[in-house]
Design a protein around this nucleic acid. Structure first.
Length: 475
RNA sequence: GGCGCGGUACCCAAGCGGUAAGGGAGAGGUCUGCAAAACCUUUAUGCGCCGGUUCGAAUCCGGCCCGCGCCUCCA
């Protein structure tokens, strides 16, 4: 039984979609004003694991994610870069999607841009005006939260303590009540604006998500996800906008991903611990290790992202790759080991149960590693049989369909690596191994070791076994 | 101040009333020409602290200490 911690109720609830077998979910995507950082990617990796788990649990998915391509930050940065807004945001939208690809984040069924939905937003604002939830000031339009009785139900925030004038950002836009938020911003000189049925201007941030989510997913979504900081005010405002209009529940489940800290401290540019994906790849860490670390800690727990953690993640992946290497290259006697067969057969359910429990990824990893150790022990004891290989590899693949840190297959990996410049081809490697074999036969171990070192330097791992040397490319 | 999350071995981390998963790192061992890989043993009589409930608590209750987040369009 699949269960999620629902922010709306504050409890763990069984997940039952509105339509049997179908899940409609929405993710608050990035604002494309710069390269996304690893904190952003923790949320998106979490969404990805959620998606994959739902899909592999048999649900048909309709997942929508937005790209915020018009707001203060995008406007300011594009101006600083001397580029038109659309050109500027296009650049970072593409960078974001590239980064997602490197992290094996599946593409949602639909990715939507705010600027493609300006008229939809204006129309929704018009309807909210007609229903009396708004007011105008200096050609901007605000949402009056006192008109929406349910305000605060998601974040459980008590707004009575926030008084007008206190703790309010010095927004150039005048609000009647500090707690209100802007739906539509009046045009300003040097800022892009659109002509719409509510007049010229540009949309506030919150309106895009409720408009695009309901447009593509209907009045009521099954799941809405985002970073924990978005619960208030962003998601609270989305609810206020959508439910004021439809009178229906906007989203039935709200999942919030906890933030990460870096080396125990909040990530910030001034502390020098602010990392984009590109920064880390540039330091030589693999995308797989980054994904592993981001996925290994369950999403509701704060994750301490460290360079040591990345090394540990890489070592863990290495262990799994070594294991698959053994599975695919070692000779085993015919037959089947019933104990191993039973353990492999028990894997899918244990794995499923771990993820069903509010996506307990740490446990889901543990389940696999236990199987790996059991199989390795069996191999070393000479008990492993050829007939067990397929089932074990299936477990590995099933696990990897969620975590996506191992190459899809050895064959795929080889092809990929061969195209990389400066690496040795298979025949080169075989030739060097032949040289090394001869050297060893002649008991010239110094030469043999030198050849092995050369291969290691080229990313080729050599292992001597009773059946001769075997090798693989190290990722 | 309000709301929320968390403190489990050297590091990461599961565990949600029945006697401490898993990964990484270290130490010792097996195997090996040497490695590598793998396996075995080992590293928390104790889960922030103090009380309480219970036959039994890391797990429940009360109090306290510490870290972090949100309450400012920062995932």
């Amino acid at each position: 039984m699949l269960r999620f911690q629902n922010t709306l109720s504050g409890k763990v609830e069984e997940f039952v979609p509105l339509t049997k077998g179908q899940v409609r979910m929405y993710t608050c995507g990035p604002t494309v004003y710069d390269f996304a950082h690893i904190g952003n990617f923790r949320t998106f990796v979490f969404c990805d694991i959620l998606r994959r788990h739902l899909r592999l649990s048999g649900y048909q998915l309709l997942h929508v994610m937005n790209l915020t391509d018009v707001d203060d930050k995008t406007i300011n940065n594009s101006r600083a870069a001397g580029l038109p807004l659309a050109e500027y945001t296009q650049r970072y939208s593409e960078a974001f999607l590239e980064d997602c690809q490197r992290l094996q984040i599946e593409r949602p069924e639909k990715i939507v841009r705010a600027t493609d939905h300006i008229q939809d937003m204006a129309h929704t604002i018009r309807l909210l005006e007609e229903k009396g939830f708004t007011y105008r000031r200096d050609n901007s339009i605000y949402y009056s939260i006192e008109k929406f009785p349910g305000y605060g139900k998601l974040s459980k925030i008590d707004l009575s303590g926030i008084r007008s004038g206190a703790r309010v950002d010095q927004d150039e836009y005048a609000k009647a009540d500090a707690r209100d938020f802007v739906l539509w911003k009046a045009p300003k000189p040097d800022e892009p604006f659109w002509e719409t049925e509510v007049g010229p201007g540009r949309p506030g941030w919150h309106i895009e998500c409720s408009v695009m989510a309901t447009k593509y997913l209907g009045d009521t979504l099954d799941i809405h996800v985002g970073g924990t900081d978005l619960a208030f005010p962003h998601h609270e405002n989305e609810i206020a906008q959508a439910e004021a209009l439809t009178g229906k529940t906007f989203s039935r489940y709200w999942l919030h991903c906890e933030h990460l800290v870096v080396e125990g401290q909040k990530m910030s540019k001034s502390l020098g611990n602010f990392y984009t994906l590109r920064d880390l790849l540039g330091k030589g860490y693999s995308a797989a290790a980054i994904r592993y670390l981001l996925a290994a800690v369950p999403y509701r727990k704060q994750l301490n992202f460290t360079m040591d953690g990345l090394r540990q993640a890489a070592a863990s992946i290495e262990r799994l790759e070594n294991f698959r290497f053994r599975m695919t290259t070692m000779p085993f006697p015919e037959g089947e080991n019933v104990e191993i067969a039973a353990k492999a057969a028990a894997f899918p359910e244990a794995f499923q149960n771990a993820l069903d429990d509010d996506l307990n990824t740490a446990q889901a990893m543990g389940v696999l590693f236990e199987l790996v150790r059991d199989a390795n022990t069996s191999i070393d004891a000479g008990q492993f049989r050829k007939g067990n290989i397929t089932a074990i590899l299936k477990c590995l693949d099933r696990w990897n369909e969620i975590f996506q840190v191992l190459p899809a297959s050895e064959a795929g990996n080889e092809t990929d690596k061969k195209t990389v410049e400066g690496t040795l081809s298979d025949t080169d490697v075989e030739q060097k191994l032949q040289d090394r074999r001869n050297a060893r036969k002649a008991r010239d171990f110094a030469l043999a070791d030198r050849i092995r070192d050369e291969l290691i330097a080229a990313g080729i791992l050599v292992e001597d076994t009773a059946e001769g040397a075997r090798w693989r490319r190290k990722s």
